[in-house]
Design a binder for these strands. Structure first.
Lengths: 190, 190, 190, 190
DNA sequence: AATGAATGAGTATTCATTCAT
DNA sequence: CATGAATGAATACTCATTCAT
């Protein structure tokens, strides 16, 4: 629960809040199914709201992406707080990250159009910040390569996303993501 | 047997053959710049041909992708032949693969819509075949993890593509690709 | 007899009356800035009231136009009464008319859609009536062409409005209106 | 016949040229009937062409206005040439101007949005230039007020347009225009 | 009553694809 | 064959109007 969330909870009427949530969930599903370029109409239809309502809440495609990411990022941050000081923080965060991607896939395309939505960059930055300390600790413990930089983290997100994207079924998506993480963590060497 | 048939390019009139080449090159550039979803108009314009000509040669977007990939795949196959029996074949092929992606980026989006173009699947299959023996040898030599399967190869292509896609400059693209390959080959462990 | 009735404004609650005035003023400004076709939303926003409130007071765009005109017409009528019997009544009324247009421009577009709002016709009729005696007197005095008919009066209003419309700055609007009136009063002859 | 016209005649295919003309004529009618803000769809429908065709020929509303004006302006220029040196040139041009307005009304709204289409300004400028010498001559002959400036000319166009705009029937439009010109030429004085 | 959320009809615009020249 | 004009389906977006709170 960050201040943003609280503010929104208080600002929007109950029905509006409900619609907002319906739209976000619909967008998650539609983007997952048809990619980030899917017709916004489809989102509105799936959410069971009119076009205008969609546009009122989210003036454009990117605002929608931001809203979806926002949820995920917040979760990462909470997790980072919960694992503060623990040696397995990095592992836990990484697992959570992959889990989000499995559930909100279709969105990494948005990430790479960051220029059109500075908020997306900001969210990515928050993820990086949440990872900072766990990464440092893992490196100190010698379980994570020392040369890992923050750009790598974003690239890892991209890589996992890329193997997931074309898969429709959530379970197979999870399997693909796990395999990709395995390759990444352990490398290709024999 | 229409002029579209790649393997019969010698049956095309000289100007038609020239147009075909112009279009492929234009497509490579346009897809790189604006993604695989770019307007085909843009391709025709860049190639300096009419729409009709574009459609005659390539009835749809995927045929175009096939033609571009075709070049790359053939190159991989030739390389495989050249490195036949050598211990460094896998390395060489992998490097070539990455190199193609650096130069024809924007196309992996096509790969993942393979269902709409069986030829793309076939091309991917050819890549896999070209890798088969080098992979086996590398595994035998103990320099490549033993559990690597052919799907992994495609996923590796996807992962490299994903970190490259958003980068416009070819040099920075190469750097990103190299870093991604480094992460992949050596893993994240400290 | 609803609260919309202008002549019964004393039956409105004080806050409702205040809202009504705010809306009219906002409409004057918005129509002036963006033309009579401006979004009613803009009017509501500028007035600082909700949409519903706007619609309660003014069920449509024309009702709003009527309310604005109403003020102006009443002023003309009062002026006509004040100048009753005077030789310069016509001059004074014409000057006042132009003055209103300078201040409430953007509205003559409404006038010409009179069919959709009979009240507008009625208001125009009241203007014509207010001018009737002054016109007759001016003609009798030989300072106004004898063939002027009431339709001419409306056309004169339109003509003045037309040269004013595209000008944003009120002072330049006044200058344009004055020049137009000069051309009209004195004609083009050398 | 200016170079522009000739160029177009030569550049466009016969069918395209025909469509272009159909669209212009349709636009003339639609704008006349529903104002310059009319749906472009209506223009396409009336011309009997698809949306895309309309947009190919005229990327936006203003390009369309320009094309319509272009015809009229060319006519004025030809007339100016034909009346070169004659004392009645001003009269003839003014009559022609009014005549065009009677036939292409609905367009002066476009003129006043000149900022969005510099070509419109340029066309207006051409009208002014065509009038320059006839105006000078008329002033010299003492039949036109000496203080008339070029801005007045545009204002006269606006004024005539304004009394015409709301009239649907072409004959009544002509009558209104004539009356307005009479008021303007002879003034309001008795 | 006042508010502002929701609705959906209307309009603009793009682009894949067909087809006349 | 090549060309580029025409088509219309798909999509985006706005705004007048209704209605739940």
């Amino acid at each position: 629960m960050t201040s943003v969330q609280i503010t929104q909870s208080h600002t929007l009427r109950r029905d509006a809040r409900r619609n907002r949530a319906l739209i976000i969930e619909a967008a998650r599903e539609v983007f997952a199914g048809a990619g980030f370029g899917a017709p916004l109409d489809a989102v509105a239809r799936r959410a069971g709201v009119g076009r205008g309502t969609l546009y009122r809440h989210f003036p454009d495609r990117y605002t929608l992406a931001v809203a979806i990411f926002e949820d995920n990022v917040r979760d990462i941050e909470e997790l980072a707080a919960a694992y503060e000081g623990r040696a397995d923080a990095f592992d836990a965060l990484l697992r959570a990250l992959v889990d989000h991607q499995v559930r909100s896939h279709g969105l990494h395309q948005a990430l790479d159009k960051g220029t059109e939505a500075p908020e997306l960059q900001a969210l990515a930055e928050r993820v990086v910040r949440a990872f900072a300390e766990p990464v440092r600790r893992a490196q100190e413990d010698g379980v994570l390569r020392a040369d890992l930089v923050k750009e790598d983290l974003l690239d890892i997100m991209r890589m996992v996303a890329s193997v997931i994207e074309r898969v429709d079924d959530v379970e197979r998506r999870r399997a693909s993501a796990d395999r990709a993480m395995d390759l990444l963590r352990n490398g290709l060497r024999g």
